[in-house]
Design a protein around this nucleic acid. Sequence first.
RNA 1: GGCGCCGUGGCCAAGUGGUAAGGCAGAGGACUGCAAAUCCUUUAUCCCCGGUUCGAAUCCGGGCGGCGCCUCCA
Length: 477
Amino acid sequence: MALRLYDSLSRTVRPLEPAQPPVVRVYGCGPTIYGRPHIGNFRTFVAYDLLHRTLIWRGFEPRFVVNLTDVDDKTIEGAAAAGKPLREFTDPNGEAFAEDARTLGILPFDDTPRATEHVDEMIAWIERLEERGLAYRAEDGSVYFRIAAFPSYGRLSGNRADGESGRSRIDADEYDKDDVRDFVLWKAARAADREVGAVWSSPWGEGRPGWHLECSVLSLGALGDTLDLHLGGEDLLFPHHENEIAQSEGATGRTFVRHWVHTRHLRVEGEKMSKSLGNTYSIPDLIERGHTPAAIRHLLISAQYRKELNFTFEGLEGSARAVQRLVALHRRLHDETVADADAEAGLAGIAETALAAFGAALDDDLNSSEALAALFVFLRDVNAALDRSGGVAGASELDVARDALASMDRILGILELALAPDDLDDDLAAWVEERIAARAQARVDRDWGTADAIRDELTDRGIVLEDTAQGTRWSRE
RNA sequence: GGCGCCGUGGCCAAGUGGUAAGGCAGAGGACUGCAAAUCCUUUAUCCCCGGUUCGAAUCCGGGCGGCGCCUCCA
């Protein structure tokens, strides 16, 4: 079974065919680090992560590069507003992104290049384009890409490459362009740029690199002349990626990207995310409201990356419940099932079926929704089998079931987050243990009134009790 | 206007020709001192109309409704 992914250029789901398997060269457009990334950004980055993990699971050797845009209008404005040099403004934002990514269990990328650290290469790139007649200098010292000289422009987005496109995109500030579709490669310095140090010298005078150029130079610089996979949010399809193709293929004469993957935007409570609606939640915002990383991650992968996903607090609560069931299953398999060499609960068959369905779902364009369904069928069937066997299973089938759960979570990364050690303080834990002991005595005495009162007391403090054959277990929430 | 996407049970969401996954919520039951956890049972003819087909949620046509990009937003 081969991994198949939707390719935005051919508009079909087709097998991933890296140029030099098992190596897969992946580049994903990363965040612009002008502020704390929001939950919408992370829908995309969690999708990157799902792909990353699936590639590894399927035996590929991904080289996964995601850039950080640290010079553009927004970072410059932000730095100016904060009265800081650009770098001083963007550094903490880059760190915030890394921190939130870790919180959500996103595997580290192999490289996260920053635009400002590769300006020399970008300048060299523009020179190549100039030599090939694909770039021209405007009167103000800016340099533009000449779209008229790149005939296949528009193939990715389906936007007509020829002249009139119904709606004028002429920007009053960009009257220097020969053609309204031409995009800037090098932006002549403005006073605002100088203020925050967002200025580099070049053959065309002082200025800064254009945003589109960044991704071509960073990706090809890190990965070679052709990328196996290029990822990005759906908003980047046009003009960003269209422009990347033009300037990359224009300069190298080779195919830029073999397979384009775009993620659908997240909606929040049924609405588009926007600052005016106040619904651009960040990861720390959600954690502060009492939501867990595992639940957030579960919700973000509950729909396939190309489908619209509506992020709601009601949904987040539902995800939290689903995560709890997974944790309970994990605990049951590891701590509560008796291994008996002679027993046979039927776990191996359940695991095999689940893994096959799970893998097939991922292979089918990362259908995380269906993969999750396979996991929950596994959950139900294992629980039912163990209920029937009285909590006893064969040692080897138990291992098989544990491995299957671990294997699926290597992709989903949910248990991995949910099982992370709780930072509950020792005093509270000691108190809980004391109360549980008191309740146990009351139960021995058949003093149900006292036993229930203690349980209520714990419930009020957010502690949930479960009486099991092995004794009373407690957990938060 | 150009290029696309979507409309499945109370909510979320799979399924793209063979008779409706899964999650959350609800109801009933088993288990339990009572609970919790777990299991079992239970709630849909898939926006509307027409067509193709032995057969369509799935294909085609037409409506209605929602959404994205075309502005350096993932």
